[in-house]
Amino acid sequence: MAAHLIPRLLQSIAVVFVVVSLVFVGSRLIGDPIEAYAAQNATEESIAAQRERLGLLDPLIVQYGNFLWGVVRLDFGESIFTEQPAWDEVMSRLWATVQLSLAAFILILAIGVPIGVLAAIRRGSIPDLIARLIALVGQAMPNFWLGLLLIFVFAVQLGWLPTSGRGGFENLVLPAITLAGFGAAAAMRLTRSGMLEVLSNDYIRTAQAKGLAGRTVILRHALRNALLGLVTVLGIMLAQLLAGSIIVEVVFAWPGVGRLIFRSISLRDFPVIQVGVLVIAVWFVVVNILVDLSYNILDPRIRVGSET
């Protein structure tokens, strides 16, 4: 286990490093925060002094070195605009985004996977057709449009749910559905086809021939094997929900990391962009490692002492 995990961790750190370095360079290429930062009547000298103070006059490589050294000491600098620690700025919004992503992920698991299984078991039935249709439409729908439609129908016309902002559970419903939409449709399709594939395999037939009842076969054998294939895809989905929530956060005025980064890019607030992307990249690799680990639990060939 550890032998497997350590190289994986090292690799992940390398991935995070590359991503963060790319963002460092990318964000330096988009220009200087001072233009938006300085007062309109600021003099040349005061602008130069501000640049100096923020370390923007140093050569790029020095800035990069300072940045890496900061990362090592877990000191990411202050937001240029709010003058609060960039780390705090991101962290204060992280929970909102994680909450949204997890809610969406739970929806994907709770809707996409069971419907996919059902559709596979009852292949060709009306429910199967409906499920496939929904999955197809869901995958073809841009999520900003879905969000606008949901607001229009459920918040404006029916008045059941709030339109935007963050608050109680009811505020979470529409953004979570919007964020989950594409993923749930994809999960539904993949579960269905995965189950169908497994169900057509010989060992299922063997199990059935051995007289195991239908439900047991499906749950114990087919579902586990189908899930195994799904875990990677679901893992990538979970990882991407966090980064992909920008649009949903914009549409629903959700005070999360995505919108923070979006705004920080237009203001060139480097420290915040960097921390934001760092957090997203770390989240991604952590989820990936968890996916790897879950293989161990799900795959009987890896697990020792399997009862099957």
Partner: peptide, 18 residues
């Protein structure tokens, strides 16, 4: 792997800002 870990949308926003 890097590409998958990279938030594509953010990158696109950076490019557009640039």
């Amino acid at each position: 792997e890097v590409q998958l870990a990279f938030p594509a949308l953010l990158f696109a926003l950076l490019i557009a800002a640039m």
